[in-house]
Design a protein around this nucleic acid. Structure first.
Length: 351
DNA sequence: AAGTCGGGGGG
DNA sequence: CCCCCAGACTT
């Protein structure tokens, strides 16, 4: 009881005013939880407001096209969340009469809803006494109990979940869960936590033993791979161009991009040109490399280096298109969902 | 159990 | 430059 008492008291005076906390409706709570997966509150908030504006009810989201959902999601990353969000909205609208499941176990069946998110929705919307365990909770509990097992392995994660149940205020799970996460985000931060004014100080094992900065322990995994993307921007005299939708299961699934040749090693210009001509067996009147230095994009475990080639051609013929390709005027490029990497290029060079 | 999936912020 | 963020899903 000490733990929950302290953090909820801390919460009532330090909490941020966030829109999804002012409701018990499952729809906006679900929406916020999906958006905030691996995403900072500050980054997700504008998207949350934008989505509620376009889709006030889950039915409105269900009726939208996936392309529109992806467009609104553009820039938030992890686009499978947007596809699963849309699929789940349709499922709830068409099969569940627009009513969200109201238990953790039933919520867990929804696409894109895992262990954390099902607990979050069940506790926030339906007051189910189930603990949330996210990055914040891993940090707070590993420090408070002095757990030095890696939190991203099953043994450590299981122990954290045990402790999360142990400290959970079963009478006020919604308040407790909000409090412990907010506490992790604002007080028990990854770097430079405010231990000197912490209400848990007296019982925090990590603080007592001076291991706060060492916890939580995580096993590292990253081996950075580089991908070389060579985009071909065809432009005809009417300012039309071709984009194509990424299919398959890789990065940016279902987003649009210019026709591309990908390499795992830095290609020679000859190789790029060869790929270009196999993709477009057409007359090219002039080629210019659009940007002198390539666009370098760093992701968590990957480095993307993108070169853009602008190809001026006499005419784009519809019958040469593949199924997933679209003919667009340059001014229409802003209407289709594209990776941020491309959006930046488009804004700088084509509009 | 290990990989993959984005993009941005902070030290 | 590296780590982290209201994780889930696939292999």
């Amino acid at each position: 009881m000490f733990f929950s008492k302290q953090i909820t008291q801390w919460y009532t005076t330090h909490k941020r005013d966030l829109p999804w906390r002012n409701t018990k409706e499952a729809y906006p709570i679900w929406l916020s939880e999906i958006m905030l997966q691996q995403t900072r509150v500050d980054q997700g908030l504008p998207y949350f407001l934008k989505f509620l504006e376009h889709f006030p009810k889950v039915e409105n989201l269900a009726e939208a096209t996936e392309e529109k959902v992806l467009k609104l999601w553009q820039g938030l990353g992890y686009y499978s969340r947007a596809r699963n969000l849309h699929a789940t909205a349709k499922y709830i609208t068409e099969n569940l009469n627009g009513e969200f499941p109201n238990t953790k176990d039933s919520l867990l069946q929804l696409k894109g809803v895992g262990d954390y998110t099902s607990s979050a929705i069940a506790s926030f919307a339906f007051n189910e006494a189930t603990p949330v365990v996210d990055g914040n909770v891993n940090r707070v509990l590993s420090r408070y109990f002095g757990i030095d097992l890696p939190v991203n392995e099953s043994a450590g994660q299981n122990l954290i979940k045990e402790k999360a149940i142990e400290v959970l205020d079963k009478k006020n799970p919604a308040l407790h869960n909000q409090a412990i996460m907010e506490f992790g985000a604002l007080q028990c931060k990854p770097k430079n936590p405010y231990c000197h004014i912490c209400p848990l100080q007296s019982k925090c094992v990590a603080y007592q033993q001076g291991m706060v900065e060492r916890l939580p322990v995580k096993i590292k995994k990253t081996k950075v791979q580089t991908r070389f993307l060579n985009y071909f921007v065809l432009i005809d005299p009417n300012q039309n161009t071709i984009v194509q939708q990424r299919k398959g299961k890789g990065i940016w699934e279902n987003l649009f991009e210019f026709p591309v040749a990908e390499f795992s090693k830095k290609p020679k210009l000859i190789e790029v040109e060869k790929e270009m001509r196999s993709i477009f067996p057409i007359e090219i009147s002039s080629t210019e490399k659009a940007n002198l230095k390539p666009v370098i994009h760093l992701l968590s475990h990957r480095k993307l280096i993108a070169d853009f080639y602008i190809l001026k051609i006499q005419s784009l013929q519809k019958n040469t298109f593949q199924k997933n390709q679209k003919l667009l005027n340059l001014s229409e490029l802003e209407t289709v969902p594209v990776p941020v990497l491309m959006a930046n290029f488009i804004k700088e060079y084509l509009l």
